[in-house]
């Protein structure tokens, strides 16, 4: 299986590469459109600020390529947020795959949300053998609003979409690569799609 992690300069992708390595898969880091198109599975990571991440995507034409991908794509954290229509972070227009918007937590809670919280209302093959209310590691200041594409929810001041799915596109707000054995199960499930 050819597994490509999109490498567009946003954040720490080593952790994701290592997590797949622990599962026995060598992931290729690439921003080359041909390489990405030819992959069986694509990971779209992202840590950092949305508008500058989007600028980096545009510079390499990946903003056009990514929404057209036909193979399973997994957006992680900011990667998931950039797949939405819009994010309040830097008032950034997203790639529009998920029909929802990304907003900032208000100050009734500590921002960023940092640490382990539960995911629930799980409904996707992505969560095979993952129990309801499993703990996942999250670090984020912005959240995706509910929409019909929500496949997991989390409570932090309010209830938001902690995972989304539209056709071959999957997005998770949490970091499966840092979420112990349950996170590894989700990565394995993605590979098994």
């Amino acid at each position: 299986m050819k597994l490509v992690i999109i490498n567009y300069g946003a954040g720490n992708i080593k952790s994701i590469q290592f997590a797949f390595k622990r599962l026995g898969y060598d992931a290729v880091l690439s921003n080359n459109p041909e390489e990405i198109k030819s992959a069986d599975k694509v990971i779209f990571p992202g840590v950092g600020e949305a508008s500058s991440a989007m600028t980096m995507l545009k510079e390499s034409g990946l903003d056009i390529l990514i929404p057209k991908l036909k193979q399973p794509v997994l957006g992680i954290c900011l990667g998931m947020q950039l797949l939405c229509e819009f994010t309040e972070e830097g008032n950034t227009k997203g790639l529009g795959v998920f029909k929802t918007v990304v907003k900032r937590f208000d100050n009734s809670v500590k921002v960023p949300q940092m640490g382990w919280n539960v995911i629930k209302n799980l409904k996707s093959k992505l969560f095979r053998d993952v129990k309801e209310k499993e703990y996942m590691y999250l670090v984020h200041s912005y959240y995706a609003e509910h929409c019909p594409e929500t496949i997991a929810t989390t409570d932090y001041g309010l209830n938001y979409a902690s995972a989304l799915q539209h056709k071959n596109f999957y997005g998770v707000q949490f970091h499966p690569e840092k979420s112990s054995t349950a996170g590894a199960q989700i990565l394995q499930n993605f590979l098994d799609l």
Partner: peptide, 8 residues
């Protein structure tokens, strides 16, 4: 550590 440990 990053290679082998699955928590932050």
């Amino acid at each position: 550590v990053a290679e082998q440990v699955n928590i932050p």
